[in-house]
């Protein structure tokens, strides 16, 4: 398989803190790859190294099979986690400026900026100053600036943070469209539901180390089943000491129960029915959220 990005045995430390510890991961071209993990897991440091903003202490980063990371900078698009705009610049100018910094000729950068702004429904703010934009508009402008030069690999660090549901959908559609047009997308998030919906592959990091890695299906297969339960009454009365249950995520009227490898869901159901009114009982493959919490728990 042709690789968009290969990270091999990469280590990075700041002072005596090990931020990324011998990380190896391969991102196939044309895929959507989720970098997941709790805060401080090393996601952003990894991404910064891919962008040649930081440089690894050891290990190699290869982009597009052969090229060196730094030389491929212009083929990358990067939306950092902390997003900012030049407040006094007009949106069109700002987008074109970032495009030109990526090596686009002036005329094309201007044309593309207008074209994309219109496509994203921002035609009315082409000549507005950036400080007059709403947060959602600002984020769209930043995404346009990231995509203007048609990068082959797009890295989005927390692209959904701070967006309302409508704009979350807009951004999600952008990511899916990038995939359809053959681009490789890496995005980091800590919201598992989003990752679960759109990722082909995931990398789960904790304390600078790889915890889980692979296609979403493979990762899910390795995890044992979960039960989704809706009940009446006070869950704390009966949701403990259940046979074969290793973890409970109690939400008040519903709960997610993780089972160990050998647990029997039927026995569990019998016990529950004897203690409460069960409104719904489903056997599921585990959610990414569940896998995440379990994996981090085990790793710690």
């Amino acid at each position: 398989m042709s690789m968009g990005l290969e990270i091999h045995e990469v280590t990075k430390s700041f002072g005596d803190k090990l931020a990324v510890d011998r990380l190896t991961v391969s991102v196939p071209r044309g895929s959507i790859y989720g970098f997941l993990g709790p805060n401080g897991a090393g996601k952003t440091t990894t991404i910064r190294m891919v962008m040649s903003i930081l440089f690894p202490d050891s290990g190699t980063i290869r982009l597009f099979d052969c090229e060196e990371a730094f030389a491929s900078k212009d083929r990358l698009g990067y939306l950092p986690e902390e997003k900012g705009l030049y407040k006094k610049m007009k949106t069109k100018e700002l987008i074109a400026y970032f495009g030109r910094l990526k090596g686009m000729p002036r005329v094309r950068a201007n044309e593309q900026a207008v074209k994309l702004l219109e496509r994203f429904g921002l035609g009315q703010v082409i000549d507005s100053r950036c400080d007059s934009l709403s947060k959602g508009m600002g984020q769209k402008v930043q995404i346009i600036a990231t995509l203007l030069h048609e990068p082959d690999l797009v890295i989005l660090d927390e692209p959904f943070s701070g967006l309302d549901p409508i704009n979350v959908e807009v951004v999600r559609d952008i990511i899916l469209e990038l995939k359809r047009s053959g681009k490789t997308v890496i995005f980091s998030t800590h919201i598992m539901e989003q990752a679960e919906q759109i990722c082909d592959y995931i990398l789960l990091m904790n304390n600078g180390k790889k915890v889980l890695n692979g296609s979403l299906n493979d990762v899910k297969k390795t995890a044992s089943e979960t039960i989704y339960l809706e009940y009446e009454g006070d869950g704390s009365q009966f949701l403990h000491n259940l046979p074969g249950v290793i973890r409970i995520n109690d939400m008040g009227k519903a709960a997610e129960l993780s089972l160990d490898q050998h647990a029997d869901p039927q026995k569990l159901l019998q016990q529950l029915v004897s203690q409460t009114t069960v409104r719904k009982f489903t056997i599921n493959t585990p959610s990414l959220h569940e896998i995440f919490v379990r994996a981090i728990g085990e790793a710690d």
């Binding site: 962008m51 950092p80 997003k83 705009l85 030049y86």
Partner: peptide
């Protein structure tokens, strides 16, 4: 403080 540095450094 505008968090623009990272975007800029991803290009130059």
């Amino acid at each position: 403080s505008n968090k623009l540095i990272e975007v800029l450094l991803s290009s130059i």
